[in-house]
Nucleic acid binder design. Structure first.
Length: 283
DNA sequence: GGCCAGGACCTTA
DNA sequence: TAAGGTCATGGC
């Protein structure tokens, strides 16, 4: 952990918002106030002091890759300002301005959001942590002696079997996770090919997997494949649409960055309801 | 002890 | 196409 890079001009970058807005389940706040976790097979620690952002555990030669992970080439300020036409969305942006959409590993995103269905975030994180501990590989042991693991490969999940998933307390999702890993492994689902698809086509393609409906497919498209117009509708977003809007599920109202709008709204509404103010995630 | 959680699937009408 | 029941699990 001696090597590190500093992100250049890190606007709209608040680690607590990025990692606690519900898009990723593998990062936790450390005692020193940084956020740490494994992404793309590496253990990294994200530190923000003042306006500077340091990524520990990453060498200069990997800069491009991690700038992509944090979506540094997208102008979030401009996108936020483009939401001025909508009062609710403007307020949400003002509050959630530090969120950036991470470019997470495709397979990890797919499996994680299958596990997320009809589940709550703390428990999702717990199941995924156990999944990685049991079927991933050790990547790094921190100063407290905690070992951090990589996300399992499709092969290791298939080898573990549906029963292996069930033992991780996934419940009815165990078969779904197994089906997803199987289809990725035997190339029934070729994740790389999703990049060349339009969003609607990508959603339809991902929904061939058992247990992947419109919502899980949308999260996978947005957080794993950079489909910014994907608009996941969970129970929270559904409530938001009913409360502030009259568009029941028509994401086109929010434009080409509907997915980012959705994250602002999701985070905002949850914070207003006090959900993210619970003991483990004080913002 | 019922309700809810970043839902999806199956059956019924 | 729409509505309702069911599926595991755990926190509250």
């Amino acid at each position: 952990m001696t090597e590190a890079i500093e992100l250049l001009s890190p606007e709209n970058f608040e680690p607590n918002m990025i990692f606690d807005c519900g898009q990723c389940f593998r990062f936790d706040k450390t005692p020193s106030g940084t956020y740490a976790g494994v992404a793309k097979g590496k253990y990294i620690e994200v530190e923000k002091t003042g306006e500077r952002v340091i990524i520990h555990g990453v060498s200069e030669s990997e800069r491009e890759r991690w700038e992509d992970f944090f979506d540094m080439s997208l102008d979030y300020s401009a996108i936020g300002e483009s939401f001025a036409y909508d009062k609710t969305l403007s307020e949400a942006y003002k509050y959630s301005h530090g969120i950036r959409i991470l470019h997470q590993d495709e397979f990890e995103t797919l499996i994680s959001f299958i596990i997320s269905q009809n589940n709550n975030i703390p428990r999702i994180k717990g199941i995924i942590a156990n999944l990685c501990k049991k079927y991933g590989k050790p990547v790094f042991t921190d100063a407290s002696g905690n070992t951090h693991y990589s996300f399992p490969t499709p092969q290791s999940i298939v080898d573990a079997g549906e029963q292996g998933m069930r033992e991780l307390k996934m419940g009815f999702r165990a078969g779904y996770v197994f089906d997803a890993a199987s289809k990725v492994l035997d190339k029934t689902i070729d994740l790389e090919s999703v990049y060349s698809m339009q969003t609607q086509e990508a959603l339809k393609y991902l929904m061939q997997i058992k247990g992947v409906g419109l919502k899980v497919a949308s999260c996978t498209a947005l957080f794993g494949f950079r489909k910014y117009d994907a608009f996941p509708i969970d129970v929270w977003v559904k409530r938001i649409l009913e409360k502030y809007y009259d568009v029941k599920g028509d994401a086109s109202y929010f434009g080409q960055y509907a997915g980012i709008a959705q994250q602002y709204l999701f985070f905002y509404e949850r914070c207003m309801s006090g959900v993210f103010l619970s003991k483990q995630n004080e913002i």
